[in-house]
Nucleic acid binder design. Structure first.
Lengths: 307, 307
DNA sequence: GATGCTTACGATACCCGTAAAGATA
DNA sequence: TATCTTTACGGGTATCGTAAGCATC
């Protein structure tokens, strides 16, 4: 048994049992991949993969149990490298954050700037994606930290509350709703609405809120990001519901944000880290910038629980 | 990084940083060991071991963190082999039990017989040793299951209650205590006493019981096993305090066991398994024979908690 | 016929063991 | 001086990549 064999097992799962893809992903030859699998199966005396003829279809029962252990070994192997890097150069290295448009555009810029100032020698990478994509990146160990409001509840990932926020309503300058002192859901539902797509930035809670009130709002456009929403609110397609931090009086001069704190429930943006993943000290500092309440030691402990 | 390097790291800790011993233990050459360590340190860019000149003294700070991960990787590697064996041949394999004299001599024979009948193709090995030795064997992964009343409370080992028992007093036929209806600690303390050594078969509880009653018993002989104790009770050196299951009316015709249930607190014999260790199905059956209350699924869950 | 896996084979690199030298107690 | 580690070197093996062959879709 060697690490290359284990890497091949893992990659075979990720590449949907196509050994040609596996070879490409690990930048080696396809026959080599075949042989490694065969060698390992021979050594263990069992078949790890289900086959029809020469095609690979999936895992055997034994393969399923082995796969989880293989994942853990490879995670630990990368942890050893992380630990070494940590001691070799405390303030130098890489950090990959996977996050959504909302965070990347409206929340992270300040924090990233502070982080870069503190750790100029850390190579910080941001990966933007849908909550689901983010979640997969972190679960696969391809990103260190996920920051999102949705879709982080998978078993491989430990999440921590980061900060809370509310949805707000935006309307064009001079819109009738600007006159109202206290706005109700019924009033909102009377207008065409532009907001996030299902699965993005708390859309689920918006739907639930209207449904609970027995209202069927007319969603004329669902977008992935607040910039698109604002654009169409400006042209008068409807009123917008966005995360409040996406509104800035300076930038959005043609728009008004209405106080609707009481209408929609609280959203919690969470950060997610892969269970068992070793994080560099500077990563914990970033986490503390994001959520001052969270302490490095507590996070380390949570990451190693229930391995 | 490869597995041989990791094995060498682990063995270096176990052999107290003597590379010559490490080479012998892994049956390879000492220069090879040196080179592997150097190669790994170069690859990681840090020193794992503290050195004075050419001598190895201990782990560096980085080495300490890495060592725990190395342990886990090697444990998982052996788990993969176990899983493979499990699927290759469900009722065939090996099982190593580490236990004390008391268990091996008076409790396990029946269970071992039943187990051998059920699983004739499993190679069952018993390792007898002191509680401390047993504990080390299981923690090092050299035995699968520990069975003992003492010394299993180390962090690497998960323990489960197995069964409970009491200490009993044995005296030679015709001893004055045989006349007494209800015996007190004071009466016992009036005679010379023969019992277990410190750290064996509940000796600690015996001492505590007398101390609590303000008594200072005269321990004229401390032995490791009940057979030695019984021998000296027979020759009249004193009265014996042993685990009740060590007495058999048939075998021990020259001795009488006195009912002292109420005098000494309950002892619990526990079984211990290394945290994260994968056990074969037949091992769980043995556990169920030892403690019918314990269920395989619950044990598997406990072994994987708090990795 | 296109895609995907296995077998065959030669070059390379890695790993191991022996021998000798150097450091430490 | 005895013990222990490092350096140096040669032989063997494992790994890798290319090329060809064969199954599956």
């Amino acid at each position: 048994m060697n690490f290359q064999q284990l890497r091949i097992i893992r990659e075979t799962l990720r590449r949907d049992f196509n050994l040609t893809d596996v070879a490409a992903a690990l930048s080696t030859s396809q026959p080599g991949v075949s042989k490694h699998i065969k060698d390992l199966e021979d050594e263990l005396g069992i078949e790890i993969f289900e086959r029809r003829g020469k095609r690979f279809l999936g895992l055997t029962a034994a393969g399923k149990e082995i796969a989880t252990v293989v994942e853990r070994i490879l995670l630990d192997a990368s942890n050893i490298r992380q630990i070494a890097d940590q001691f070799a150069s405390r303030d130098e290295g890489t950090l990959i954050i996977a996050t959504t448009h909302t965070q990347a555009r409206y929340v992270l810029p300040d924090i990233v700037k502070r982080f870069k100032d503190t750790y100029p020698r850390v190579h910080l990478t941001l990966h933007q994606g849908s909550p689901r994509e983010i979640s997969n990146l972190v679960a696969a160990g391809e990103a260190d930290i996920a920051i999102a409001t949705e879709a982080l509840d998978v078993s491989e990932i430990v999440t921590f509350p980061c900060y809370t926020w509310h949805h707000a309503v935006i309307v064009p300058e001079g819109h009738p709703l600007c006159q109202e002192v206290s706005i109700t859901l019924e009033q909102l539902a009377a207008y065409p609405i532009i907001t996030y797509q299902e699965g993005f930035t708390g859309r689920g809670l918006i739907d639930k809120t209207f449904a609970k009130a027995g209202l069927a709002p007319d969603i004329v456009l669902s977008a992935i990001d607040a910039d698109v929403i604002k654009t169409y609110v400006e042209v008068g397609l409807g009123i917008g519901i966005i995360a409040s931090m996406a509104y800035s009086p300076q930038r959005d001069r043609n728009l008004r944000m209405l106080d609707t704190h009481q209408l929609f429930p609280i959203n919690t943006t969470r950060l997610g880290i892969r269970r068992g993943h070793y994080l560099r000290d500077y990563a914990f500092h970033l986490v503390e910038m994001l959520a001052p309440r969270l302490k490095g030691a507590a996070i380390r402990a949570a990451l190693n629980r229930d391995g």
